[in-house]
């Protein structure tokens, strides 16, 4: 396959993943705003930071209000990572790599774009917000479903998956980093309503509140939450899960092409770090430092894959 196509596929799925993550963040923000209005402004600020959109938002707004944040994250064209831009970029990349996709995947992306272009053509009224966020998540699921159900398991599929998990690992790590202070062991036992709200936001943002309850019952300890999101290989949005998948897909490429490249070594290193560490060690060395290092390694890996597989000249 063409190097350009591999790059297009990776970005297509990064953008799809990003749009879904942003929808989840907005959903969480909205829920907190409704249930704990006193915390709203602070939570919206966290949401913006998690989406890496805080600085750009503050540069063009005087205050943080739910309405404006939602609009900024979903459809404001000045925000390059708003959902509408992500979906448009995903589709543009899909057009570019059209020959690598099945008709089902292409149509799922195209329909996703057609639907959301209409839904996000104007400001979303707050009564419509749950419905629109639902559509974003659902459309994203359709694309994923078409990918799983119809694509040949070969290099094309591997690059699509690599894009998905690199983006997802980035999003989860960012979410944790913005909230790292409420996850520190020193926050344990505090259990104030304030902390509960923060923890709930974290779990909801990765669609893991149900999963966490199933594993831990009523007890919510920040250490458990941090371990769950970072090191539990069963949770599809945890760092460990993402890296297990990245490792798999790179191994498939290695055996398919018969060559091991620098990106494989880098991914193995990150994978092993996650496997061999404990949450206690992470807290000892510093959660924030750990996450910062992880984020930087994750983007190094993306850049290395781009070089190894000749996405550009």
């Amino acid at each position: 396959m063409l190097g350009k196509t591999a790059g297009g596929l990776m970005w297509m799925f990064r953008y799809m993943e990003r749009s879904e993550n942003i929808a989840r963040l907005v959903e969480t923000g909205q829920r907190i705003a409704l249930t704990r209005p006193d915390r709203a402004e602070g939570e919206w600020a966290s949401v913006l930071k998690t989406a890496s959109a805080y600085d750009a938002y503050m540069a063009s707004h005087d205050e943080i209000t739910g309405d404006q944040v939602v609009d900024w994250l979903l459809r404001n064209k000045d925000n390059s990572s708003c959902v509408l831009n992500c979906i448009e970029n995903a589709r543009t990349n899909a057009r570019l790599v059209r020959t690598g996709l099945t008709r089902e995947v292409w149509e799922a992306v195209n329909e996703c774009w057609m639907t959301l272009k209409d839904e996000l053509a104007r400001k979303v009224a707050s009564k419509d917000l749950p419905r629109v966020l639902g559509i974003i998540k659902q459309r994203s699921a359709f694309v994923r479903g078409a990918l799983h159900g119809t694509m040949l398991r070969r290099d094309v599929y591997d690059f699509a998956r690599l894009g998905t998990f690199i983006e997802r690992a980035d999003a989860t790590a960012r979410l944790l980093d913005v909230k790292y202070y409420v996850l520190l062991p020193s926050a344990a036992g505090v259990g104030s309503p304030l902390d509960n709200a923060q923890w709930e936001m974290i779990l909801r943002s990765v669609a893991a509140e149900g999963a966490f309850r199933a594993l831990h019952g009523r007890t919510r300890r920040p250490t458990d939450i941090a371990r769950f999101l970072m090191l539990d290989g069963r949770l599809p949005r945890s760092l460990a899960f993402c890296y297990a998948k990245i490792g798999d897909n790179l191994r498939y490429l290695e055996s398919d092409y018969g060559i091991r490249l620098p990106s494989h070594d880098l991914a193995d290193t990150i994978c092993k770090d996650l496997e061999h560490t404990t949450i206690e060690t992470i807290f000892e060395t510093g959660l924030h430092q750990f996450l910062q290092r992880f984020l930087s390694q994750n983007s190094q890996l993306a850049a290395q894959i781009e070089r190894d597989y000749r996405f550009s000249q």
């Binding site: 396959m1 063409l2 190097g3 591999a6 092409y257 597989y309």
Partner: peptide
Amino acid sequence: RIAMRTTQG
């Protein structure tokens, strides 16, 4: 010859 840049060279 004319060659295209693929993921494998």
